[in-house]
Design a protein around this nucleic acid. Structure first.
Length: 108
DNA sequence: GCAATGACTGGTA
DNA sequence: TTACCAGCCATTG
């Protein structure tokens, strides 16, 4: 492939990963950064803000299971539709239950 | 090519 | 428990 488009790096790594997150499950920005090898949650959030419009961004939350104010309103709708386990109040996802193990065949 | 921005994270007080 | 600070890196103008 003509790896001459750094922009595609996002859709190439984060795209399929976020799209692979099953309904009712979520990943944290840190997890996405780790799984993609970026190691920078800030970068994940940045590119999400630019290209996340075509991805299930509501399946990617902060380390505490919450999201930005403006996104919570939208995300809550998707969480309800997918039956994502939320914390008391529904302002954040219950990572204890909703945290996705990742594309790996979780041994066990 | 440089500087600024951002949907974050973890540690310390 | 809550609040503030510094680090991190890709994207954009």
């Amino acid at each position: 492939m003509t790896a001459r488009a750094p922009r595609r790096r996002y859709l190439d790594d984060v795209g399929p990963l976020v799209d692979a997150i099953p309904p009712g499950r979520v990943l944290t920005y840190g997890d996405v950064a780790e799984l993609t090898g970026w190691g920078a949650p800030r970068a994940v959030g940045t590119v999400m803000a630019r290209h996340g419009h075509e991805l299930p961004w509501w399946r990617v939350v902060r380390a505490d299971g919450s999201l930005a104010e403006g996104l919570l309103a939208r995300a809550r709708l998707h969480w309800a539709e997918e039956g994502t386990p939320l914390r008391v109040g529904g302002d954040a996802v219950d990572l204890e239950r909703a945290r996705w193990e990742g594309p790996e065949p979780a041994a066990g």
